[in-house]
Simulated assay, not measured.
Amino acid sequence: MNQTSLLLSVLFGSIGAGYALYGKRQDHIVCLVCGLLLGAVSFLLDGPWTTVAAGLALMAVPFFVRL
C-alpha cells in the first residue's frame, strides 16, 4: 500500500463514516449503504483512479436516489 492509497482510504473512509452516521440517524438506507461501501471501496479496488472514480460515484448516489 503506497501513500496515495493510504490517503484515499482515509479520505473516503471518513466521508463514508459521515454518510453512515447520517443514514443511521435519519433512517435513510441509501446513505447508510453508500457510507458502508465508501469505507470498503479502498480495500476492494486496486489503483488510485478506480478508487477515486468509485468513491465519487458512491458520494453522488444519495443525491440522485431518493427512497
Rank of each mutant, 00 (worst) to 15 (best):
A54G: 05
L45E: 00
G18R: 07
V61H: 03
M1Q: 09
G23K: 07
L7N: 09
L32H: 04
F64R: 08
F12C: 02
A53H: 04
R25P: 02
L58A: 00
W49E: 08
A17F: 10
A20S: 12
L45G: 01
L37S: 00
Q26Y: 10
V41Q: 14
G16A: 02
A60Y: 12
R66H: 15
G23V: 08
L11S: 07
L37C: 11
L44N: 03
D46T: 10
G35M: 03
Y19G: 00
L7T: 14
L44I: 15
L58G: 00
V30M: 11
Q26I: 09
Y19E: 01
P62H: 09
V61F: 11
D46P: 04
V52T: 07
C34L: 06
L11I: 12
L44P: 03
F63G: 06
V10R: 12
V41L: 10
G35S: 04
L32E: 07
D46N: 06
A60I: 13
M59P: 02
A60V: 14
L38F: 03
G18S: 12
S14P: 00
L11Q: 06
L36A: 07
M1Y: 10
D27H: 14
L8R: 00
L45W: 01
L32Y: 15
D27G: 06
K24F: 13
C31K: 03
A53W: 08
Q3S: 11
V33M: 12
L36W: 07
R25N: 15
G23Y: 12
V10Q: 14
V30N: 01
L56Y: 08
D46M: 06
L58Y: 01
A53G: 09
G13F: 08
G13T: 04
G18W: 06
A53T: 14
L67S: 13
L6K: 14
G23L: 10
L44K: 02
M1T: 10
C31R: 03
G35C: 04
F63H: 10
P62F: 10
A40R: 05
A60P: 07
K24V: 06
L6P: 00
L6C: 05
